[in-house]
Design a protein around this nucleic acid. Structure first.
Lengths: 228, 228
DNA sequence: TCAAAAGTGTTTGTACTACACCCATGC
DNA sequence: GCATGGGTGTAGTACAAACACTTTTGA
């Protein structure tokens, strides 16, 4: 084996798929590149890993400096290794996906550079690098994860109605779910807790507000929907 | 952003968790290190990524040169980033797990260096680096994957009896499963196909031989066992 | 003919599906 | 009082769990 220092190392980038939920639509944050390669094309936000950084720290740096946000749900997605994925040379991309609540970022919205924009996941433009592949993988992961892990709550406010949760699931999974069965399932699985409070000021009956049950033993939960 | 070439890149290692199934026990392949750090300790087989290699190519290189095997099931597991995980300096580890059938490797067994050894997964020794963490993650992944994807067949011969499949599942999951319900489930899900052949030369009734149904639409399959 | 493993069927209970009615609210 | 969404109950069904008997083989 060669001595440790003689290896030529590829560059290591961290790229992020940031999901948000706006007006009953799942959306993703894209960045319009200002420099080559893929100048003026949309890409996922990313940065090169600095030698002393953990992946999470790189993620935080991207979120803070490029997007003006912090403290979000992050999960490692996959590492991409196509030797041709970056025209500048060999770059490995370690990817994460993030779930953010855009409401909580309204202050941050001002800080967001004007080359950053939310796109409905059903209408995303052509992406530079292999970022379409990364995005596809992230969406697929989110779809399957939400069936057995409380991952969707990160996209909602702390208090939410059953309809809001129901719509979120239908939107992410892209299928219809019977609202009555959905509600029962969420309650008997103790996935959510009824706060007793109600949402005021709506036109119709005031719906009850729920919060996520953080004490749940998640292993028990499974939404029996075959992943489409 | 700094120019592309000015970044100092961490080294990039690929580490492998190679699972095998011997005499009704799940085992993992470990390598006794001949050089520092962790000299004379057991570790997962691994290698540094060469600049032009894909991850899969690095995996194949490790499998072939260190373990004398090739053409095995491989799946990317996770990327590990603890800055202190390697005492020599910053090394990112991209990990894969492999499933191999030790029967098919009996010729290869001779080629295997004598510092390579199978260990029962319930009795693995202390491991160097953060390899225990990696191993744990691999086992966990295998356990959950086997519930919804035909991943276990890679560990068996092409033809196998229902008992053998049943024992494999019990062994990996670490739980008891009713053999009659298990058998029915496998058959109605069309997960396996009865070949009509029987295994000869046993003391008792000759069991039927099955093969994995490669044409299965895997989405349909789900073994309803809550992951322990 | 006996022991050991393999093959098969039935009953029971639970949980998901599908569906319909009443309730609260603002206009 | 009416339109709109919110809350709840029930019958039917499908599937998984639990369980026992028969069959085949070598010794």
């Amino acid at each position: 084996m060669k001595p440790f220092s003689s290896y030529k190392n590829p560059a290591l980038a961290v790229d992020l798929v940031v999901f948000g939920y706006h007006e009953q639509n799942l959306s993703v944050l894209l960045l319009n590149r200002k420099e080559a390669p893929f100048k003026d094309q949309w890409t996922l936000p990313g940065a090169f890993l600095q030698i002393e950084e953990t992946f999470q720290q790189t993620c935080s740096r991207i979120l803070k400096t490029k997007l003006g946000m912090d403290d979000v749900y992050l999960e490692q997605l996959f590492s991409f290794d196509d030797p041709a994925r970056d025209p500048r040379g060999r770059v490995i991309s370690v990817t994460y996906y993030a779930l953010v609540n855009p409401h909580k970022l309204e202050i941050a919205a001002g800080k967001m550079a004007n080359d950053v924009q939310w796109f409905n996941v059903k209408k995303i433009p052509a992406l530079g690098f292999d970022h379409k592949k990364i995005f596809d993988k992230a969406l697929q992961r989110l779809k399957s994860k939400i069936l057995y892990f409380p991952v969707g709550f990160e996209l909602l406010d702390e208090l939410f109605t059953m309809s809001e949760l129901h719509q979120l699931y239908e939107c992410i999974l892209g299928i219809e779910i019977d609202r009555r069965n959905f509600s029962r399932k969420m309650l008997v699985a103790e996935y959510v807790i009824n706060t007793g409070q109600k949402r005021e000021g709506l036109q119709n009956r005031h719906p009850e507000l729920f919060r996520f049950n953080k004490k749940l033993k998640h292993h028990n939960f499974q939404l029996n929907i075959i992943n489409p």
